[in-house]
Amino acid sequence: MTPLIEANRVSRTLADPEPFTLVCDASLSVAPGEMVAIVGPSGCGKSSLLYLLGLLDRPTSGSISIDGRVTEDLGEAERTHIRLERIGYVFQFHFLLPELTALANVALPMRRLARLTGDQIAERAAALLEKVGLGDGAGKRPERMSGGERQRVAIARALANDPAILLSDEPTGNLDSANTRMVIAEFQRLAHEEGRGVVCVTHDATVAAAADRRIHMLDGRIVAGD
């Protein structure tokens, strides 16, 4: 089975203002149906690695394949299209568009992809919100939602275009334990029942324990995995 993500000796260094290595020689792969946690001390390069895996950033050396397709030689437009179609992002701070309702936020990626009709998009957005337990909050703006609710809207939005890959950076960093449990359960369901590849950068031991595998990082390097 082709891995969803395959990173092969990936490095990312900065030249300015002084040479600095964010990620060094990292190799990993993520298969469909598994939930992987990336753990390590603050500043070790977890987020940097996640940006590389999600094609938001380009490695200075090494290569990353998505669905078995090498991405280094692709232009920005193609990489962006892969993000739109195959990858969903969830960040620690929900990053919803404040002007739009929950439903409109969830609809954004679908409207951009424009594969469904307007009615189908509205229907699917409502269904996704229903799944994360926000069936009646569809018309609310982010400012009138709690942190947990916003994070659930962000998860629903990440799943809008039915991506094979879900990347998340400290998704529970701002949540209480009840919401954290809910997010863990959702991620496990997405991996185990829906067969997606879920990658989760986390400090939270419960989240890490709930993952199928843990990748440990230190100073930009992957030091251990289980």
């Binding site: 999600g54 938001l56 920005e76 437009a77 962006t80 299209h81 993000r83 739109l84 179609e85 990858i87 992002y89 960040f91 990053f95 919803l96 568009l97 404040p98 954004l108 990626p109 951009r112 992809l113 939005r157 275009n161």
Partner: peptide
């Protein structure tokens, strides 16, 4: 700027 970043992460192009 935050919204722009999230739109780009979501798969909106520079041109969008």
């Amino acid at each position: 700027r935050r919204d722009i970043a999230i739109l780009r992460a979501m798969g909106f192009t520079e041109r969008d």
